[in-house]
Simulated scan of single mutants.
Amino acid sequence: MTVASTPELEADRQALIALIGDEAVFHGDFTLASGKKATYYVDMRKLTLDHRAAPAIGRIMLDLIRDLDGVAAVGGLTLGADPIANAILHESVRAGRPLDAFVVRKEPKDHGRGRQLEGAEVAGKRVVVVEDTSTTGQSPLKAVDVLRREGAIPVAVATIVDRRTGAQAAVEAAGLTWLAAIDLDDLGLEPQ
């Protein structure tokens, strides 16, 4: 379990945990992006794109990465990372520690400049890859590969909800710091 750095941020985190439990955890038979089967699904897009949760997500995730030195931008594999990166971007400006955002496409565009990485210029800069939920870590690691090819220096992967099913080990094996705002214990769920 992670605890936020201030009582106000911890209150935001607890409110987000309650919203996730009430509105973003679905029970049934699901196939996750990793291909794994699960009896519950945490649909964070319901909340990363919700006006009630997005500001708190920005504050919580900015707090989560606060101790990483020299980070210039946040982002990750589209679509899950996009609203998180935007929430962090807006909160970082409000907090007086501005960060830029980037988007990693799953494939390079087949038109225009043919880019796979959009947004902030990240070559030579320290960046954090963000994700809504993590199972195996493969989605953020795909983003890390693209970022490294573009000359960025990924330093961490930060996720809102860690399913505790191997993502942390995979990310750390790639030489990155692992950060999670909420885990299954917080949600009263068991790893699958």
Rank of each mutant, 00 (worst) to 15 (best):
R45L: 12
K46F: 05
L49C: 15
L49R: 12
H51L: 15
H51S: 15
R52S: 11
R52I: 10
A53S: 15
A53H: 08
A53L: 10
A54N: 13
A54I: 11
P55C: 08
P55V: 10
A56W: 10
A56P: 05
A56K: 15
I57K: 03
I57A: 04
M61D: 13
L62E: 10
L64S: 13
I65V: 14
R66N: 11
D67Y: 00
L68E: 06
D69E: 14
D69G: 04
G70Q: 03
G70L: 09
A72L: 06
A72N: 05
V74Q: 04
V74E: 00
G75T: 02
L77W: 01
L77N: 01
G80N: 01
A81K: 00
D82H: 02
P83L: 08
P83D: 06
A85K: 03
N86A: 15
I88L: 10
I88K: 02
L89C: 11
H90Y: 15
E91V: 03
E91P: 06
V93K: 11
A95F: 04
G96V: 09
G96P: 08
R97M: 12
L99K: 07
L99F: 08
D100I: 00
F102K: 01
V103Q: 14
P108K: 07
K109T: 06
K109W: 02
K109P: 09
H111K: 12
H111A: 11
H111C: 09
R113W: 13
G114Q: 10
Q116N: 04
L117C: 01
E118I: 05
G119V: 03
G119K: 00
A120F: 08
E121Y: 09
V122L: 12
V122A: 03
A123G: 03
A123S: 14
G124L: 02
K125G: 01
R126N: 13
V127M: 07
V127G: 04
V128P: 05
V129S: 06
V130T: 09
E131D: 13
T133K: 07
S134Y: 05
Q138E: 15
K142M: 14
K142A: 14
A143Y: 03
V144I: 06
V144W: 08
D145T: 15
V146G: 06
V146F: 10
L147Y: 01
R148K: 15
G151T: 10
A152V: 07
P154A: 07
V155S: 00
